[in-house]
Design a protein around this nucleic acid. Sequence first.
RNA 1: GCUGAUGUAGCUCAGUGGUAGAGCACUCCCUUGGUAAGGGAGAGGUCAUGGGUUCAAGCCCCAUCAUCAGCUCCA
Length: 491
Amino acid sequence: MKMHFVERFTQPGEKISLYRNGAFVDFCRGPHVPSTSRVKAFKVLSLAGAYWLGDEKNPQLQRLYGTAFFNKKEMDEHFARLEEAARRDHRVLGKQLDLFSIQEIAGAGLIFWHPKGGIIRKIMEDWMREECIRRGYDLVFTPHVMRHELWKISGHAGYYAQNMYTPMELDDADYQLKPMNCPGHILIYKNTPKSYRDLPVRLAELGNVYRYERSGTMHGLLRVRGFTQDDAHIFCTPEQIEDEVVACIDFAEAVLKTFGFAEFKVELSTWDPKDRKNYAGSDDKWSLAIDSLEHALQRKGIPFRTISGEAAFYGPKIDIKLVDALGRLWQLSTVQFDFNLPARFDLEYVGEDGERHQPVMVHRALFGSVERFFGVLIEHYAGAFPLWLAPMQVGLVPISEKHIDYAKTVQSQLQIAGLRVELDDRNEKMNAKIRDLTMQKIPYLLVMGDKEAAANAVSVRTRGKGDEGSIPLEEFIAKAKKLVEEKSTYL
RNA sequence: GCUGAUGUAGCUCAGUGGUAGAGCACUCCCUUGGUAAGGGAGAGGUCAUGGGUUCAAGCCCCAUCAUCAGCUCCA
């Protein structure tokens, strides 16, 4: 193995390096620790296969993973972080909190949203749809299966075929599940002639797409075979691009802020002009698009990293990576140019000059995938959702059977106020009810006995704070409604 | 897809060739309790699926499916 590198790096004029630890001499770019005595804390982590030179066509080697630190404290902190991440694992929390499941009998990578996950999804989707309408998008719905002919025109049947479910034959035609929503939106755009006065046309859809993922690649909600994109396509004139991109970034910021993510990083992926032949679209279009994206980011005053050669073949893009509660990065939102599809579908609009022009198309997804966003959300909050998102917002704990009637009147008043309530009327001691509901991470538990029933009050136990004493029911309702209204992350 | 591991009750897991187990959850009974687990009884299993070896398989062998840790690829 080392001979491969010796041969590769020992061309005339090339500098090579050798490292020595005691009797062990290694041919390596380095650096190595000067002495193994510097390594005060280390641990073997795992054993796994890895492809020779990272290419799956090459044979696999056994790779032994380990980690080392200058002292025990640093190592302990590292493992504490890993444990914290494991404790927040959305797959584990999804089971404990009964949010979603994946069923072997139904197939890998296909998500079942249970009632408690479903209500969160409904809140996410309602918010997204209303926000789209407020921001000038039109909502559309497109079919889940469409004829193979369409995917040939869009080019997916060619360059995306490995990721698509195979066609199903029906009458005289082959139909295929959609891996993307773009062609559907394009057909709606094309259905009527467009004037420059109609632009920009912004079509949005929470579209279910299906992609074949290789068997070893699925991971909970984060990598699946069927998912929902909060997808939109904006058809506009070249002059409108910059404003549209700024609006998309504003929108993305609003999404992240609303769902509790304070931090994010932005990357601008551009082409590599030296590799010209690998990109569709004219030079003019590329430089206009890259300039627009850059100007938009500068106008927003957002710091970003430009990565050349990372663009899709059909256009440059902005990727927004959010930073979660543990400092991990997640790629979700994306704003992409597409020079390919407007040409393939021969899109046009009539300009001020009375001539036909080709519109520019921007593709954007903010949650990215509703499933993945939900997975990240679960881990970010460790399952302790803010009040407006919590599937069960209030848990009711009658102290004894005598207080169940009062608890029912409290329940109906909370429900009338629009709150999601769980009444624990089991034949259990109060302590057991508090424990069980606490483990469900319910934001508020209301304990009620003789004193509360007499005063039309509730004893409030707030998640993470404990017993906060009795207050009038009306007061609690007003407070809870306000926090929901504000989408507060505090209780 | 590849390498390695795993798959037993709703959940978490024990069981290493000879009658399938525990805790929690569930049902019923007793208990009516003031801020994180009261007590008792009961019910619950094609031991992932399909083959094979054996007098006998949850356990050994093969294949398939799924999951996990990685690799590779992505929203």
